[in-house]
Design a protein around this nucleic acid. Structure first.
Length: 530
RNA sequence: GGGCCGUUAGCUCAGCUGGUAGAGCAGCAGACUCUUAAUCUGCGGGUCGAAGGUUCGAUCCCUUCACGGCUCACCA
């Protein structure tokens, strides 16, 4: 197609896309890769890798480029230890040293431990609009796809050793090989290479079961390259143009660094364009995650509180090399406000200086699961949503039907999702002051002094007769007037009102709250005090 | 020891194709005879870690230094 003169915007994903085209040249197709080892629950930190790639993929596609987006499950890897958050830990221990694809699923649903971890991710990525092509490395290895790559590594093992030794405290021993062999009999990696025939033949012995054999790795797939060699080999195999990596891989002597050297000196190929991404912290979560995932925060957990667009916004709006924390505390409200503001800017409802405009618009586009809506969706602030959702006691169907009867389609889906998140947040993470439940079905009466009861009664009559003409200000004034006439101050009275409505001394701003709750429910409750 | 990243208003941070700094919260003042991160309006001016350099001009580029943090030196 063509090589653009400058990035589409100053957004980091556009800048990276521009770099890829500039460094790799004008290609009919670009390969962007991501990958992790499913050796445990895939957490939100791992998610940063895949969404970072996805954003760059989008940026390239927005430039009219054809992109292959691959996600490698590096699952032909040894089961080293049993993670703390797994069930049936003792059973799992039997499988230590085997590839994680041969360890059973501790939940007993999937074909393997690796697959169970993979499935969880694959099932949820579509929710945030991410659709990579998955590559299962155990399948690739066991089908002997990488035989040539393995042979090359064996041939140049001295080169590899020299590269790795530059950074090691202890040089690799003479007996070191760039491969790991899983015993064909007991499946463990406790094997020692005895001999390499200079081509495709390897012989080994297993210290666990005593098994020994000579194999041809063009026909037998239990030989794999060690991580630091495997990565560069696959760069060439898939012709990868772009792949980011965590900061731990990016320092000198880190695996990305050595892979860069190995791909050049062993595989005669250029490394992909890259950047490093920082870790993700968690804030205000306080160990409230369900026991099924232990203390590991996964994308699923984040989606309980943040609607998909906002999750994307979090990552799209932060430079990858910056560490940030995902909050589960009061900051959630602020994050939603920021997203809504970005949305308003995108739709021209809020003015911002031209420099920021371009970036904000792009961030909004990148935040969308599919594409940006044609017109601005109805915005219901998260804070307000927490009130609504509690009035309806989590009944989202009723909430949607009664509060937003005219909203439909995608707009309704987003709103409903936000309502669900608000409910989850209120019930799980919000501070106690945020929670309430209307005493619609609670028949027990609060003991009230006469003057307080009188104000309640007068309020009842006012609401009954003039509901349709009341607004927040008028209602507020009226309540105050009633108090004064009964010789009460607002400060004295309001706790009673809240006890009557919610069974506690405090609650959301009274006037707007009453109007939001609705005539029927309010009169039901207040009517008990007539 | 190597590498990387920070150091900007009280706090949390934006600002990164160089043109003498912004936002939120806090704070202060006023409005509202209501209350949860509760409403409205106005205000506040920080040697942009330090010292050099490049430039007509640097928070933004280069060098050095000081703090703080992360990471590799085992595996993946």
């Amino acid at each position: 197609m063509s090589i653009p003169q400058k990035p589409k915007s100053s957004h980091w994903a556009d800048v990276t896309a521009f770099r890829i085209i500039k460094e790799k040249g004008d290609k009919p197709r670009y390969v962007c890769a991501s990958g992790i080892t499913p050796s445990g629950t895939v957490h939100i930190g791992n998610f940063r890798e895949i969404i970072s790639v996805e954003l760059v993929v989008r940026a390239l596609r927005d430039l009219g480029k054809d992109v292959r987006f691959i996600y490698s499950w590096d699952e032909y890897d040894v089961f080293r230890k049993v993670p703390k958050n797994m069930p049936n830990r003792e059973d799992l221990e039997t499988y230590l040293r085997m590839p994680i694809t041969m360890v059973p699923d501790p939940w007993g649903k999937e074909e393997s431990y690796a697959r169970a971890n993979e499935k969880e991710v694959e099932a949820i990525l579509p929710e945030v609009g991410i659709f990579p092509e998955y590559i299962y490395q155990a399948k690739e290895y066991t089908s002997c796809r990488y035989a040539e790559g393995i042979r090359r590594a064996l041939e140049r093992r001295d080169v590899i050793r020299r590269i790795l030794d530059k950074y090691r405290a202890e040089p690799l021993p003479d007996s070191w090989w760039p491969v790991v062999i899983f015993c064909a009999s007991c499946h463990k990696d406790t094997t020692t290479v005895e001999h390499w025939d200079g081509a495709y033949g390897l012989s080994y012995t297993c210290s666990s079961c005593g098994f020994k054999e000579a194999l041809d790795f063009r026909r037998q797939g239990n030989v794999k390259l060690r991580w630091r060699v495997d990565w560069p080999m696959r760069w060439r195999e898939e012709q990868v143009d772009f792949e980011p990596a965590g900061k731990e891989h990016h320092s000198d002597g880190g695996s990305f660094d050595t892979a860069k050297q190995i791909v050049r000196e062993v595989y005669d190929h250029e490394p992909p364009v890259t950047f490093k991404y920082d870790f993700i912290g968690i804030k205000g979560q306080g160990g409230k995650i369900s026991s099924s995932t232990g203390n590991v925060i996964s994308l699923k957990d984040v989606l309980e509180v943040y609607q998909p667009e906002v999750v994307r916004y979090l990552f799209a709006g932060t430079r990858p090399d910056t560490e940030f924390a995902i909050s589960f505390d009061l900051d959630v409200i602020k994050i939603y406000e920021d997203y809504d503001k970005c949305e308003r800017i995108y739709f021209g409802k809020e003015q911002v200086d031209p420099k920021k405009l371009e970036r904000e618009r792009r961030t909004y586009e990148f935040s969308q699961v599919e594409r940006a809506p044609a017109s601005m969706p109805l915005q219901v602030p998260f804070r307000h949503m927490t009130t609504l959702v509690q009035i309806y006691e989590g009944d989202l169907d009723a909430l949607m039907a009664q509060e937003f009867p005219s909203v439909s389609g995608e707009e309704a889906r987003r709103l409903r999702r936000r309502a669900q998140c608000a409910w989850n947040w209120v019930t799980t993470y919000a501070p106690e002051e945020f929670r309430f439940s209307l005493r619609v079905d609670e028949e027990t009466l609060e003991p009230l002094e006469d003057s307080h009861r009188k104000v309640i009664q007068r309020l009842y009559h006012l609401l009954e007769t003039e509901w349709d003409s009341l607004d927040e200000a008028r209602l507020g004034e009226a309540v105050y007037a009633f108090c004064e006439e009964e010789g009460l101050t607002a400060k004295d009275f309001f706790p009673s009102l809240y006890r009557v409505l919610l069974g506690k001394d405090r609650g959301p701003r009274a006037a707007s709250f009453i109007l939001t709750v609705g005539k029927e429910k309010i009169l039901t409750i207040l009517g008990r005090y007539l």
